[in-house]
């Protein structure tokens, strides 16, 4: 099954996991195979061959997210945002197995329950799917990034409308602003000052 390139890839994955900081190190020392299973959704890929197929398709995920305690955004929301960003950016392709809840919690130093909640939200939003007993995966929808962008656009659009209402702008005023934006062209896209 494994061609030469995949072998190299698998080797690289091991190497990455081996030198990817002391957190992974301590895990690997205990049981190198166990570490692989953690990353690839435990229980499902019980044979080594299957593990290899996973790695042939998906790169190793670094489970550490960059979270901040001084950010006023709730922790779970930060996780949701970052994972969404990763999926939108294509860092994590569709079907990619996610780190287990504990793995991500430990690496990012947040509580398990926070990650659970974030995964639940992500599941509801359709960003990830959770299969019972297998772990979570990036949702297998072909245009996931688009739908996420769509959702983000809707959110901003609604916020803009709400703001406009409070300013007392009419629909025509908004239309006018859009036309102005168009007229100035793409040269100065971030003019952004509201009257």
């Amino acid at each position: 099954m494994l061609d030469e390139r995949s072998r190299l890839c698998v080797h690289a994955v091991f190497t990455v996991a081996g030198c990817g900081g002391r957190r992974h190190g301590s895990c690997l020392r205990r049981n190198a195979d166990g570490c692989l299973f953690l990353h690839s959704g435990r229980g499902l890929y019980s044979t080594k061959g299957a593990v290899h197929t996973v790695y042939m398709k998906y790169a190793q995920i670094d489970p550490e997210l960059f979270l901040s305690t001084s950010d006023s955004t709730p922790m779970y929301q930060q996780i949701v945002n970052q994972i969404t960003t990763k999926v939108m950016a294509g860092d994590w392709p569709a079907g990619q197995p996610l780190p287990s809840i504990r793995e991500l919690a430990s690496a990012s130093r947040v509580s398990v329950i926070t990650v659970k909640r974030a995964y639940a939200e992500l599941g509801q939003a359709g960003v990830i799917v959770t299969r019972h007993g297998m772990g979570s995966f990036v949702a297998d929808s072909p245009n996931l990034s688009d739908s996420l962008l769509q959702a983000e656009f809707t959110q901003h659009f609604d916020a803009m409308l709400a703001c406009a209402r409070r300013l007392g702008l009419s629909v025509d005023d908004i239309r006018q602003l859009l036309d102005d934006e168009q007229a100035h062209g793409a040269a100065e896209p971030t003019r952004g000052s509201t009257p």
């Binding site: 504990r102 793995e103 919690a105 430990s106 690496a107 130093r109």
Partner: peptide, 12 residues
């Protein structure tokens, strides 16, 4: 210390 404490989370 918090990082070491986070290690504990791996084990359910």
């Amino acid at each position: 210390v918090l990082e070491a404490l986070a290690d504990v989370l791996r084990d359910e």
